[in-house]
Design a protein around this nucleic acid. Structure first.
Length: 506
RNA sequence: GGGCCGUUAGCUCAGUCGGUAGAGCAACAGACUUUUAAUCUGUGGGUCGUUGGUUCGACUCCAACACGGCUCACCA
């Protein structure tokens, strides 16, 4: 144990509330009560007890219902010889009543009176209604299932401190029901996406998280080391190149929902590890994927809203009813940033446009890079309703297929919703010679100081040389999608355990 | 990384002009057999994020640092 950890432990033991709970724990053990037994098996969830019996108005009928349940004590109201407690389990809450004369004076006084908010109980008994008509479980037997030695946050305000909520998500989940709901919804969203793709013949696969050569995205990777192999490995920045190897291998439709890792700053929309959906389909192009994306996301929104097409995100209504506008980069700049449609191919005009939008042309930036940067500054944030932006410059799309009619343009789109990039997709480059040339360009950029540029992946070129069928592929950032659908303002709100600086370090 | 804001009891928060800290809930002792954030009586609980500085005196003013929030930059 490190010194600071020991200090923290000592400090916790100084907390009189924890000390008082440990005294009770010790007293229970002294009385022969195991404070952490495993063996109680609740037959009912609290929500099921409520939903099955709350409509019942006949007191005699309720009294006939025998149930057992388990849960955490969230509220405790003691009247001496009678105690009401509110139990919470995964399904919900239910009030129980424990009477001294029912459970026995010795148990009531020596054991049950030591139960506190936070403890887990197993209860058996019958149902009744209180004078205020609340359906309540009258316990005939009570068993302590887990003693809690750490006090929960105050019952009314709960836990509001954002730092503590992120660092102790378990407490956040105990006391904040809307947080539990959000993460259940996140799970449903992912389940829906998985089902959608499986229904269309996509095979779910898992590809390496540790890459000898990081690839598939322009991003700084994390580096780690494998001792036995004696090599450095990179946590993946994208699964793309492995998924396309599987297309070469003959799986014509594959997808992966998993983590990517990028060694970049944290922000309200960035976590170093984040969840990405990538899917690839042979014999399709990026237009096919636009259709598929509309269908997929409109279906997810129906799942989330119970059949609707609209969600509210941060006070703005977003309508997912297809079809969604499909604009080229240049068209988006004309429409949203007042650019001159006649001059979008003039380099001098693009520099002027970029400056007008508050940017500064970078040394060595070609016309394509200028166009993209102008778009990001002038148009991206205004794309609130779902909008496909198409036809990116090849120079900023090193893995995309070229347009047959316009070789400087990539067959690529990004989907913007709420001002954020939510998806990135393209017809895949399957010409090994062109791909090798693009890699060489990336390597040159890296040598010139671009530490996000890609490496040359010789095995990927070798795979393409065997022949990858014409393919389209897409990545969708799951965290951002969940943010949009749950009205979350920060990525940390949709991650169970967001990355935080270590606490209490020296 | 820059800017702004925050950090006081287990939790949620007050704290005046610089004079060594308060409330509610929680805890502890007690009363109470139908409460709903139960109520009532009483009691205890603080390295005011950390370290320095200014001052007779610092929760308060100043600086540095730590952690967090918002925001800008980078990115998805």
């Amino acid at each position: 144990m490190s010194d600071w950890k020991k200090l923290m432990t000592d400090a916790e033991e100084d907390n009189p509330q924890i000390a008082a709970r440990k005294v009770k724990l010790a007293a229970l053990r002294q009385a022969g009560i195991n404070p952490y037994p495993n063996g109680f098996r609740p037959a009912w969830s609290l929500a099921r007890i409520f939903h099955d019996h709350d409509p019942v108005t006949d007191a005699a009928a309720l009294e006939q219902v025998h149930v057992s349940a388990a849960g955490r004590v969230m509220l405790l109201r003691s009247f001496g010889k009678l105690t009401f407690a509110t139990l919470q389990d995964a399904s919900g809450r239910l009030q129980i009543a424990v009477q001294r004369d029912t459970v026995g004076a010795e148990f009531y006084n020596e054991v049950f009176r030591k139960v506190e908010v936070g403890d887990h109980l197993g209860v058996e008994g019958h149902l009744f209604r209180t004078r205020t008509n609340e359906l309540t479980l009258r316990a005939t037997r009570v068993r302590l299932l887990t003693k809690s030695v750490r006090p929960l946050p105050e019952k009314f305000h709960g836990l509001e401190d954002r730092e503590t909520r992120y660092r102790r998500r378990y407490v956040d989940l105990i006391v904040n029901p809307e947080v539990r709901e959000l993460f259940r919804l996140r799970s449903r969203i992912i389940r829906h996406i998985r089902g959608f793709l499986e229904d269309r013949g996509y095979l779910e696969v898992e590809t390496p998280m540790m890459h000898p050569i990081p690839g598939g995205a322009t991003a700084r990777p994390f580096v780690t080391h494998h001792n036995a192999l004696g090599v450095d490995l990179y946590l993946r920045v994208a699964p793309e190149l492995y998924l396309k190897r599987l297309i070469v291998g003959g799986f014509e439709r594959v997808f992966e929902i998993n983590r990517n890792f990028r060694n970049e700053g944290l922000s309200v929309r960035h976590n170093p590890e984040f969840t990405m959906l990538e899917f690839y389909q042979a014999y399709a192009d990026y237009h096919d994927l636009m259709d598929l994306t509309e269908e997929l996301l409109a279906g997810v929104v129906r799942e989330v809203t119970g059949g609707g097409a609209r969600v509210i995100h941060q006070g703005r209504e977003i309508d997912f009813t297809p079809p969604w506008p499909r604009l080229t980069l240049a068209e988006a700049l004309v429409r949203h940033a007042g650019a001159d449609a006649q001059r979008m191919t003039e380099r001098a005009y693009l520099e002027e446009l970029l400056r007008r939008l508050g940017g500064e042309p970078r040394a060595g930036a070609d016309a394509g890079a200028l166009l993209l940067e102008a778009f990001e500054l002038g148009a991206e944030a205004r794309l609130i309703q779902p909008t496909f932006i198409m036809d990116y410059p090849v120079s900023v799309s090193p893995l995309s297929r070229r347009s047959d009619s316009r070789p400087e343009v990539a067959e690529r789109f990004e989907l913007f919703i709420g001002g954020w990039e939510v998806a990135n997709a393209f017809s895949e480059l399957n010409d090994p010679a062109d791909q090798a040339a693009r890699f060489r360009g990336q390597v040159a950029a890296k040598a010139a100081g671009d530490d996000e540029a890609m490496h040359f992946d010789a095995d990927y070129i070798r795979a393409l040389e065997y022949g990858m069928p014409p393919t389209a592929g897409e990545g969708i950032g799951i965290d951002r999608l969940v943010m949009l659908l749950t009205d979350a303002a920060a990525i940390r709100d949709v991650l169970l355990f967001p990355q935080m600086r270590p606490e209490g370090g020296e």
